[in-house]
């Protein structure tokens, strides 16, 4: 791992922090990207003390494409294998979206268009180096439009489809894309929400992510039992699904 570098987008999220820590323990270099640079500096120092070869805070805002180029330039200066993991995302409550549909645009930028535009700029670098891994964190919510969060789910579904196509493209150059679909994870996003069950710690998702990257898996659910839950949810016929409040 000593010659690998990971760009972590949305690095202040709980899942991203757990992943960055696990990568730090392996000695990887880390570019920790996000909006809260004070917080990122704390995380970077922590990663360095836990074994990272290099860890730096870099400003990045999924809604501000002007922040993409400096991060890409910084990454291009690192030799060796270049990887990226995308944790950016937001989930306004569906009820707020119902009263203010204008929220959809920003959410889409956080969950799909921002990361996709960034990854599109990054892809040629991986192709030129002939390798590397991109991990995109989607959500089980992207597997079907449910009453409680279908706008959020739609943004994640778009990201899944994008990652699928990007994986197809990068495979030709020896690079790899992993789509991660977490279920309920114990983060700020789920803290105090009603109806949560089988909530996984972020560290468990981080372990699953790194294992999937190592084994070059294409799509994983984290924790893995969500594959079966979502299989059932996807199989419910639409006429019946429309009557369910799940």
């Amino acid at each position: 791992m000593m010659d690998t570098t990971w760009i972590i987008l949305g690095a202040t999220s709980a899942m991203a922090r757990a992943t960055a820590r696990a990568l730090a323990a392996q000695g990887a270099g880390l570019l920790l990207a996000g909006r809260d640079t004070n917080e990122l500096a704390l995380i970077a120092a922590d990663c360095r003390l836990r074994g990272a070869r290099m860890a730096e805070a870099v400003a990045f805002d999924a809604r501000d494409p002007a922040t993409f180029a400096p991060l890409l330039a910084r990454a291009s200066g690192e030799e060796g294998e270049l990887n990226a993991a995308v944790f950016t995302g937001s989930m306004p409550p569906q009820a707020e979206i119902d009263t203010n549909p204008a929220l959809i645009g920003g959410m889409l930028a956080d969950n799909f268009t921002g990361p996709a535009e960034f990854l599109h700029l990054l892809a040629p670098m991986l192709e030129a180096r002939g390798g590397g891994t991109i991990v995109g964190v989607g959500s089980v919510a992207g597997d079907r439009g449910r009453l409680g969060n279908y706008a959020y789910g739609a943004s994640k579904a778009a990201f899944h489809t994008y990652l699928s196509g990007l994986g197809n493209r990068l495979a030709r150059a020896g690079a790899h894309v992993v789509t991660v679909k977490p279920g309920f994870v114990d983060t700020a996003m789920t803290w105090g929400l009603p109806g949560m069950f089988l909530v996984a710690p972020p560290e468990a998702v981080a372990r699953a992510i790194l294992k999937a990257a190592r084994k070059r898996r294409n799509v994983i659910y984290a924790p893995s039992f969500w594959r079966w839950i979502m299989l059932i949810i996807r199989m419910v016929p639409e006429p019946i699904f429309k009557k369910l409040k799940i």
Binding site: T12, S13, A14, D36, N38, E39, L42, T187, A188, W191
Partner: peptide
């Protein structure tokens, strides 16, 4: 409350 960030 379980703050995830110093600012929180």
């Amino acid at each position: 409350a379980r703050p995830e960030r110093r600012g929180d």
